[in-house]
């Protein structure tokens, strides 16, 4: 007979093993990428893959010589943050009106918005390319920011809508009676109450924008090209160079990984403290 306590321990061990396994599976590609970035091209290509090797910085040096990493990184930062800020500015009022002033068509609008995400982007590449050309937005950070804002907006509105839905209407009405304008209602009451949810929405938008490759490859060439474009430029021209590709990918991922890592604590705290009660 196992006691309740033993049973609980077994559960904890099983659960722990499971989550570690999943975490390792998810983490492995990143680990392998970083590892490969420190190999020579020969080591990188070896089968079976070599695990013990002399690490080298050669790849990073080559990349630094060949391309201006900081130019691309800066573009990524500007575009991701720009799109996230613009997205939040549009999504918060949109979600506010949908959550607290629901009409007959609100649910349909939400579904319709999300359905635009089901459209393959390539389907609208031509029209968007032409529009961008006409408005001289090709290869500009502004253009890329606009497109990222638009593609992330449905998800952002949807997420924020669900966070707002959890806020009792009474509290906003109390604020209104206390003399708050709609703006103050949102800024002083609603946003502080949902800051955890808003932060995770912003982070998601940031990550999605940072990693976006389809539009950045098609709408930029050099001036506004972000890190994803840099990575792509190493993947094709003169055959495959695994080590260099890994190095440039590592460089592309590093900022957002570090950012995610740093904001994680803040985020978890925001999520658990943001709750209503």
């Amino acid at each position: 007979m196992t006691t309740l306590k033993q049973q609980k321990q077994i559960h904890a061990i099983l659960l722990g093993t499971l989550s570690w396994t999943i975490a390792l599976i998810l983490f492995f590609p990143i680990f392998w990428m970083v590892l490969t970035s420190f190999k020579t091209e020969i080591d990188a290509f070896a089968t079976p893959p070599s695990i013990f090797f002399w690490p080298t910085l050669e790849n990073y040096l080559t990349i630094n010589e060949r391309s201006d990493y900081f130019h691309f990184a800066w573009n990524s930062v500007v575009v991701s943050f720009g799109a996230t800020i613009a997205g939040m500015i549009i999504a918060i009022p949109a979600a506010f009106s949908m959550a607290f002033y629901e009409t007959k068509r609100t649910k349909t609008t939400l579904l319709w918005m999300l359905s635009t995400k089901m459209l393959p982007p390539v389907g609208v590449l031509m029209p968007i390319y032409l529009i961008f050309k006409d408005f001289s937005l090709l290869d500009t950070k502004t253009g890329l920011t606009i497109i990222y804002t638009l593609i992330n907006l449905p998800i952002m509105v949807w997420m924020i809508y669900t966070y707002f839905k959890e806020i009792p209407k009474d509290i906003l009405e109390a604020a209104r009676i206390d003399g708050a304008s709609v703006m103050q209602e949102i800024l002083l009451v609603l946003i502080p109450m949902t800051k955890g949810g808003l932060a995770s929405t912003a982070l998601l938008s940031l990550i999605l924008s940072w990693n976006e490759a389809f539009w950045s490859l098609n709408l930029t060439s050099s001036e506004a090209a972000p890190l994803t474009a840099l990575v792509a430029s190493y993947s094709s021209p003169e055959g495959l160079f695994w080590a260099k590709l890994s190095a440039v990918s590592t460089l592309a991922c590093a900022p957002i990984l570090i950012f995610g890592w740093v904001s994680q604590k803040q985020l978890v705290r925001g999520l658990s403290f943001g709750a209503v009660k």
């Binding site: 009792p168 009474d170 509290i171 009405e173 109390a174 604020a175 209104r176 009676i177 206390d178 003399g179 708050a180 002083l188 009451v189 502080p192 109450m193 209503v276 009660k277």
Partner: peptide, 29 residues
């Protein structure tokens, strides 16, 4: 609008601002 009517309301659910202290709740208006 409600704010211009010079009325105060106490809700069944209390509707306190959860992110503010008691003092801040009372001084908000």
């Amino acid at each position: 609008p409600p704010a211009k009517r010079d009325l105060a309301m106490v809700f069944q659910s209390y509707a306190l601002y959860p992110h503010m202290s008691v003092k801040e709740n009372m001084s908000f208006a």
